[in-house]
Amino acid sequence: MIRLTGIEKRFSGNPVLKGVDLTVAEGAVTALIGPSGSGKSTLLRCANLLEIPDGGAVEIQDLRLEFSAGRRPSQAEILRLRRRTGMIFQNFQLFPHRRVIENVMEGLVTVQKWPKERARERAMDLLGKVGVAEKAEAWPATLSGGQQQRVAIARALAPSPALILCDEPTSALDPELAEEVVDVLRALASEGATMLMATHDLRLARSVASHVAFLEGGEIVEEGAPETIFSAPAEPRTVRFVRSLGA
């Protein structure tokens, strides 16, 4: 179980998250939707402690960390929680100075201290799974955006994280390339990966998510099954937002 409770985050006094509660069941995919600036990215970054919440708690499986304004968790606590997550970024953020396969091996070799050969085997398997095995020895700069994002997915999956965070994984891509990435994410979801993704991509939310949460002004306004949120939302604010998406 992944549980975020009462997550609060302020940037120089400005409240950006105002006590967000969100649960992602094991093997479920939750999509976060909401207008620009509503705090979707910040919430994802609080889940892997790229931002340290000012209040609330993050719980991933049997590990729970509580936050309060005065207290910063220790580096060891941060790493322990973070190493249960993987993240996929809007603009890929592959390591440009490492070959494709080295990007995927990096977490295994540097962080998990796997022997190189074993890491290479796992990385090769993952690259096959996301359909870029033939690019294993290429430099990231020579790949298309869709290929880069699929490598980034393999990199995030390599250490077998309990939770995969995706921040608008398709929004830097042309529609056909986005399609490749959606396919890979859908396959992952059907294999039982637990994911939390922020997205403006309706196709992604509809075809991959099992649960949708609508965030506005740092609060969850409404959540439920994708069909409910997209077709018959209860809250007027959700209705307005979903209409603006052209759903």
């Binding site: 790229l50 973070r82 997550t85 970024f89 953020q93 390591f95 977490g107 998990q112 990199r155």
Partner: peptide, 24 residues
């Protein structure tokens, strides 16, 4: 973003510096 990518796979600050930032 490169720091964050390094952190997201669990690197310590020192590892992120040595393996990701410094070489670039």
């Amino acid at each position: 973003g490169q720091w964050e990518a390094a952190y997201s796979i669990g690197m310590t600050t020192r590892q992120a510096m040595g393996r990701t930032i410094l070489p670039q």
